[in-house]
Design a binder for these strands. Structure first.
Length: 563
RNA sequence: GACUUGGUAGCUCAGCUGGAUAGAGCAUCCGCCUUCUAAGCGGACGGUCGUGAGUUCGAAUCUCACCCAAGUCACCA
């Protein structure tokens, strides 16, 4: 960054006032390959002013420029290519990494502002699927990234713990369930009752009547209904927590839909007071025509409230409770319209802070090209995927490194890491078709590849034995190490971009690039040879490990020191 | 039909605010473990960047139109 400015300052002195420093900075680009230089200035922009061919301009600029602070400056076609001083740059970057450690790349963009993040949000009595995985790991990673630039993320698991399905569930349980069964295997049993209910209700509509009655009881605070609901919720939650533990994700709040039950009347009243509610086809709506949106349906014909009413109450509650600077919703793209409506209604109510609410959408996971759905039986259970991945990692360890200490834990780190990384490495919006062999792959652009690179770095440091790696005197001029060093320098910029775009894949891609550069480096250059740059090389290896570990940590992936 | 996403190598995807011969991984084929873990490294093969116009010195990138796929479109969440 300072370096780019250096380049711009050197240029601004010799362009005869035709371009400002800012304009030059905007034009400066980074060549595709470092063989072409570290920064490049295309001379096209000066062609008109100088009335000369860009190639000539580039040549002239190189002759006039003060080259003292660069390794070299060269004209290649219409470009002026700048090569940084490798020794000084490597010393600078390595010092920054080693002195800051895991805090390298941190900044104070957020000023500790609160950012509630609505994420994961599974439904009680249903298993956590691959779809929830996306919301969970994307939300978790965004939280980590925002914390890194000093926001205060608040991870909210907006549980689906209310609704007519509980009437069905209670009915089913009373008919076919048993306490012992549920205790033994809560999610699967509850799901089984639920599925059976749907099947039998097709032939026996009486069941639906019964279910509605039970839900009514629940709403009215009937003791037995509440007791069952509380129990189902607790059982489900403890099953969910098992999976969250595997993923290494913690939440700051589990306030779900039920929590907002007594907060919706206020919303409806507010809407009425502001004359926003209109009657339409027997239901109460908010007209959003001026936003080019469909009307928001606030109250059904039977007076019951809907999803959006609950989300309005939740949004208002979050503003009051956290006074957020941003409020995020990590929810699938298929709900894009809903969030537009939600923000529009809040805006209509006079809440300008609705501009600080952002829907963070993500693409669909399909199987065999088809949408997953609980009802059709196309479910991929996250727990099974994580277990399969861990088992495969275990096999891999037996194969490659049978004497590895702590093999169980490493297998978990690698297996689960592979699954999480696979989900985060591509842009959120991409859809992907679930193929187990793809998700738990350990080679190529994968989590384990990054973990392996870090483990190798750690291994080298171990082998170095009793040496003291210092923050200073790390002037590496070796061209073989150059790409790695430059990538280390990019890390702070990468984090800011990931935060701005709410895009963990930026960090994941970076981790792959750094791993690749480092693997290439140590595969061809021996680190542990006794010469005057040995300590500097070790400092670089240590820096790589610090940044890889931190990158993985931002993604929510562990970085074992040995694997 | 309207709106939202997306359409880059056989497959999965990168490509930052338009710029130098369009890059990875997987798959296929070949080479490298007597030297820091081969979960690695190197090489080969492979692309009219959906199509057609336009803006520009210059377009995968910006504008418009069209084609294709997925998703959404008031009483589920």
């Amino acid at each position: 960054m300072n370096y780019k400015q250096q380049v711009a300052q050197a240029l601004v002195a010799i362009v005869d006032g035709n371009l400002t420093e800012e304009e030059i900075i905007a034009k400066i680009e980074i060549p595709k390959s470092s063989e072409m230089g570290d920064y490049a200035f295309p001379a096209f922009a000066l062609a008109k002013a100088f009335r000369k061919a860009p190639q000539m301009i580039a040549k002239d600029l190189v002759e006039q420029i003060d080259q003292s602070q660069f390794e070299s400056v060269a004209a290649v076609g219409p470009y002026v290519n700048f090569f940084l001083n490798k020794s000084a740059f490597s010393q600078d970057i390595i010092e920054q990494v080693l002195s800051n450690g895991s805090k390298y790349g941190a900044s104070d963009v957020g000023h500790e502002g609160n950012v509630p993040i609505d994420m994961s949000s599974p439904n009680i009595a249903k298993p956590i699927s691959m779809g929830h995985l996306r919301s969970t790991v994307i939300g978790n990673s965004i939280a980590n990234i925002l914390a890194k630039i000093n926001y205060n993320p608040i991870k909210i698991n907006h549980l689906g713990d209310w609704g007519t399905q509980f009437g069905k569930l209670i009915t089913a349980y009373k008919l076919w369930g048993s306490e012992a069964e549920v205790k033994a295997d809560p999610i699967n049993k509850l799901l089984e009752y639920y599925v059976r209910f749907h099947k039998e209700a097709e032939e026996n509509p009486e069941l639906d009547v019964e279910a509605r009655a039970w839900f009514k009881k629940l709403e009215d605070g009937d003791e037995e209904a509440i007791e069952l609901w509380t129990w189902f919720r607790a059982e489900s939650l403890s099953a969910f927590n098992k999976i969250y533990d595997m993923l290494g994700v913690q939440f700051d709040s589990f306030k779900g839909e039920a929590f907002y039950n007594d907060k919706m009347d206020e919303v409806v009243t507010m809407l009425k007071d502001k004359n926003l509610l209109k009657e339409s086809q027997g239901a109460e709506i908010v007209d959003l025509e001026k936003y080019d949106l469909n009307p928001a349906l606030i109250q059904k014909t039977d007076g019951a409230t809907l999803y959006i009413t609950r989300d309005l109450a939740a949004a208002i509650y979050r503003k009051r409770t956290y006074n957020f600077v941003q409020s995020l919703y990590v929810v699938g793209n298929e709900q894009a319209n809903h969030f537009k409506q939600l923000k529009a209604v809040l805006k209509e109510m006079g809440n300008d802070w609705s501009d600080d609410m952002h829907h963070i959408p993500f693409g669909l996971i399909t199987q065999g090209g088809k949408k997953l759905s609980t009802r059709s039986g196309r479910v991929i259970l996250l727990e099974e995927v994580l277990n399969d991945a861990t088992d495969l990692a275990k096999k891999q360890i037996q194969d490659k490194n049978p004497d590895l200490p702590n093999a169980e834990q490493v297998a978990k780190d690698v297996g689960v890491g592979a699954v999480i990384f696979h989900d985060l490495k591509n842009e959120r919006m991409n859809n992907f078709d679930f193929v187990l062999e793809e998700v738990v792959r350990f080679e190529g652009e994968t989590g384990p590849y990054v973990q392996y690179s870090n483990a190798r770095a750690q291994s080298i440091i171990r082998k170095a034995g009793d040496v003291t790696i210092s923050e200073s005197n790390n002037e590496l001029s070796d061209p073989a190490a150059w790409d790695t060093i430059k990538l280390l320098g990019d890390f702070p910029k990468i984090i800011k971009r990931a935060a701005k775009e709410y895009e963990p894949s930026v960090v994941a891609k970076y981790a792959i690039h750094l791993s690749r550069a480092f693997n290439k480096y140590y595969a061809n250059s021996k680190i542990l040879v006794d010469d005057d740059q040995k300590l500097a090389r070790l400092a670089l290896v240590q820096s790589v490990s610090v940044v890889l570990t931190e990158s993985l940590s931002l993604l929510g992936v562990n970085a074992p020191k040995e694997m």
